[in-house]
Design a protein around this nucleic acid. Structure first.
Lengths: 203, 203
DNA sequence: GACAGCCATCCTACCAGAAGGTAGGTAAAG
DNA sequence: CTTTACCTACCTTCTGGTAGGATGGCTGTC
C-alpha cells in the first residue's frame, strides 16, 4: 500500500471541497494552486481543462457513491437500516463539516450553466441513487420491513429530495442538526408500526 | 398607474433569471447588458456593485414571497389548501419554466462563497418561510385539519426541505413532473384520514 | 415663454486583476 | 532518450468597476 497520494489526487480532493462550497463557477485553477502548493500551469498537466478536471472529479465521486451503495447492500440486509446508514453517513459529513454537501446535488442546482459533459455525469448520479433507493424500498415493502404509502419509485424520489433539501436547510440555517431533524422523522415514517397500542392511539 | 417598467426593474428581472439558472457566479454584468440592451457601465449607474444588485434582488424577492404568504393567509383559510396552493405555485413555475427554482434556495447552496450581505438576506428568507409553514401546520393541527407526526416546526422544516429537494430533482431529471410527483404525496400525508361519512359530510 | 441650472440616464473609453489556457524549458527517473 | 512532473513566462478574454462626457427632461427665475 504505497501512499500514492499523488498530486492529481490532491488536486481532485481540493477541487471537490471547493465545488462543495461554491459550485462550478465558485473556484478557479488559482484557488487550487494555492491550496495544493503547486503552480497554476501544473494543474493543466494533470487536467488539461477545467471540464476535464470536474468531469473526472464527478466520475470518481460517482464511483465512490456506487461503491458505498454496493457496500451497504452486502454488509447490511435490513432495508431500513440501509437507509439509516445512508442518512447517517451524510449526517456525519455535515456534522464534522468535512463535506457538508453532495457534489452532484450542488452541481445539479447549476445544471443550466454546466458544461454538457459534466451535466451528464451529474444526471447519471441522480439516476443511480434513485435506482438504488427504489430497490431498497421495494425490497423493504415486499418483505414487510418498510411501510410505503406509494410506489417504491415515488417514495425513493421523495426520500432523495428530502435528503437533498435537508442538506440545503442545514447550510442555510448554519446548523448541522437540522439535517438529522429532517431525516429522522423521514426514516421513522418508513418503519413498520409494530407496537399496536401506539398505532391505535394515533387513530 | 404609469407602466414604470424601468430599466432597473428590467435589470433585476434579468439578473433574477440568470441567478436561477446558475447562481451568484453564474452571470456577469455583460450578460445582463446583452439581454437588457444596455451598456455594462449603465448597470453600475443603477446598481453600483454586483453585491448591491443581488442584495436588492433578493430583498425584493423576499418582499414578493412574504406578500405571497400574506395573500394566501387571508385569501384561503384551510391550512391544507394553503399548502396545496404554495406547492402548486412552484409546480406551475417549474412547468412553464419561467422561474424553475427558488432564488434563495439556489443561493443558499452557495452560501459559503456568497458575499455576507447577500447571505444574510438568503438566510432570512429561510427563516420567514419556515416560520410561515410552521404557523400553517400548527393551526392545521390545532383545528384537526392537518395530521402531523411531529412538532409543527419539525414538519415545516421537513416540508420545506422536500419542496426544495423536489425542485432540484426536477432540474436534475430535466422533468417538471417530478416536482408534483414528490410534493403530491407529501401533501396527501398531511391530510387527515377522515372516516368516509365525515368526508362526505364535509364535501 | 426664455433661459439657465440641475440631475438622472446612458454612453464611450478605459483599467486592473482574475479567468482558463499555452509555449517552452528544466530536472529527475526509468 | 523518452516520459513524467513541474516550472516561468506569457496570452487572451472576461470580470467588476471607474472617469468623464452627451443627452434630455425637469425645475426655478426673470
Amino acid at each position: 500500500m504505497s501512499n500514492l497520494s499523488t498530486t492529481s489526487d490532491d488536486i481532485l480532493a481540493c477541487a471537490r471541497s471547493l465545488i462543495v462550497a461554491g459550485g462550478y463557477n465558485g473556484f478557479s485553477y488559482a484557488d487550487i494552486a494555492d491550496v495544493v502548493g503547486i503552480r497554476k500551469a501544473s494543474i493543466h498537466h494533470h487536467f488539461p481543462s477545467k471540464v476535464d478536471l470536474v468531469r473526472t472529479l464527478v466520475a470518481r465521486y460517482r464511483e465512490e457513491a456506487d461503491a458505498g451503495m454496493a457496500n451497504l447492500e452486502h454488509q447490511v440486509s435490513d432495508p431500513l437500516e440501509q437507509l439509516r446508514l445512508y442518512a447517517g453517513y451524510w449526517e456525519a459529513c455535515i456534522a464534522d463539516a468535512t463535506a457538508p454537501f453532495c457534489v452532484c446535488a450542488l452541481l445539479a442546482s447549476q445544471l443550466p450553466v454546466l458544461p454538457e459533459e459534466v451535466g451528464l455525469e451529474v444526471r447519471a448520479h441522480f439516476r443511480s441513487l434513485s435506482a438504488w433507493l427504489t430497490s431498497v424500498l421495494e425490497r423493504g415493502a415486499r418483505h414487510g420491513q418498510l411501510q410505503l404509502m406509494s410506489t417504491p419509485r415515488a417514495e425513493a424520489d421523495a426520500f432523495m429530495a428530502t435528503v437533498h433539501g435537508a442538506m440545503l436547510s442545514a447550510r442555510a440555517y448554519g446548523d448541522p442538526k437540522i439535517f438529522g431533524a429532517v431525516t429522522g422523522p423521514l426514516l421513522e415514517r418508513l418503519a413498520p408500526r409494530l407496537p399496536p397500542a401506539t398505532a391505535l392511539a394515533l387513530g
